[in-house]
């Protein structure tokens, strides 16, 4: 998909210098970070009184996002036609096993993600893509929608409203994804006191202090743990490659010379010894493809002037990228652990 990045203001020789220092071994980043280290970020949770869960996150480049999560109780059979359509889709996809557990497993559309950006229309391609990518990650492992089931006739509907407060300086997907992750971690739903049997109307506890977190810090029982495959909402990380080197949390200047930009979505795995679960990998057009020099490809390369690389990315690099994200003790786990410290 297309990036939002504004055209770079760096000159060809500056880009060349940047590219060379990033492709050295060991690489030198402009701000002297190590390839896997993140810039400092500011976060707070539970800031909105009218939302079930909320979070605010500021990245070091000044971009800021706020996410509010709201839950509503909805009748499972209430929108019959819509469900009918979705079930057809499942059948066509050939996933027969889903059909039987439909009641227990929940539906993807119970989670709704909207993204709001200043100065962008609601139906702007960029906004729709971002919302869809975050939604995709959230429902990919089925853990979240399974938590939304109350009983056979009632379920929670989760609205995740993402507000980008600043103009998108760099590609905003990781910011939005991490903020949504934090908001979901802080989300609490009212505790049911009655009506958990098959068809009863549920009655909820009025006491907000008794509300149950959507993602409990320790699973209530080992059985519940087995049912819900992921104990943490997924996160999406932006990874770039320059030559054979891989960098996390790229700055605007680093994105400008990236050979490949990849968004990797990972979620924690049920057992503590395994690697993280890989949910999605998406390649994003690096901004260099849009720059003026890309149009001149095929001309003779001048010494000291940088030209964007032609062609796709190598499979070894992609494998290394994914490995760094999902490995035990890798970057994905470090980010998940760091975010947990904010709540």
């Amino acid at each position: 998909m297309a990036p939002t990045a504004q055209p770079t203001i760096l000159s060809p020789s500056e880009l060349s210098y940047l590219y060379t220092s990033l492709s050295l071994n060991p690489p030198i980043r402009p701000d002297a970070r190590s390839p896997t280290s993140f810039r400092p970020l500011v976060a707070e949770t539970d800031l909105l009184p009218t939302a079930n869960g909320s979070a605010r996150l500021c990245f070091a480049d000044g971009t800021e996002a706020i996410v509010g999560v709201k839950g509503e109780v909805e009748r499972t059979g209430g929108v019959g036609k819509q469900i009918g359509i979705r079930e057809d889709d499942v059948e066509m996809g050939g996933i027969e096993g889903e059909e039987g557990t439909g009641g227990a497993g929940g539906e993807d559309w119970w989670v709704e993600v909207t993204v709001d950006m200043p100065g962008q229309r609601d139906d702007d391609a960029m906004v729709v893509f971002l919302a869809q990518m975050i939604h995709e990650g959230l429902v990919a492992d089925g853990g979240l929608r399974a938590r939304l089931v109350i009983n056979r006739r009632w379920h929670w509907r989760l609205y995740i409203d993402i507000l980008l407060l600043s103009p998108p300086h760099t590609y905003p997907l990781p910011l939005l994804s991490l903020t949504a992750h934090l908001a979901l971690l802080s989300t609490c739903l009212p505790a049911p006191v009655a009506g958990l049997e098959k068809d009863d109307d549920p009655i909820f506890n009025d006491d907000w202090d008794a509300a149950i977190p959507l993602y409990p810090s320790t699973p209530p029982s080992s059985k519940a743990k087995a049912n819900l495959s992921a104990a943490r909402p997924p996160i999406t990380l932006l990874v770039i490659s320059v030559g054979d080197n891989i960098f996390f949390d790229p700055s605007h200047a680093e994105l400008a010379v990236a050979d490949a930009v990849v968004a990797v979505t990972v979620a924690s795995s049920p057992s503590s010894t395994d690697d993280l679960n890989l949910l999605a990998v998406r390649t994003i057009d690096p901004p260099s493809r849009l720059s003026s020099s890309a149009a001149e490809m095929g001309q003779a390369v001048e010494e000291g002037a940088w030209k964007p690389k032609k062609g796709g990315m190598s499979r070894t690099v992609l494998r290394k990228m994914v490995g760094m994200c999902v490995a035990r003790g890798g970057v994905g786990e470090e980010v998940l652990g760091g975010l947990e410290g904010f709540t």
Binding site: T50, S54, G68, K70, D116
Partner: peptide, 16 residues
């Protein structure tokens, strides 16, 4: 430009 967030009120609704 005034943006009313969906989660700002008691009931969730989009007002644009």
């Amino acid at each position: 430009e005034v943006g009313v967030a969906g989660f700002s009120g008691m009931d969730r609704k989009r007002r644009r």
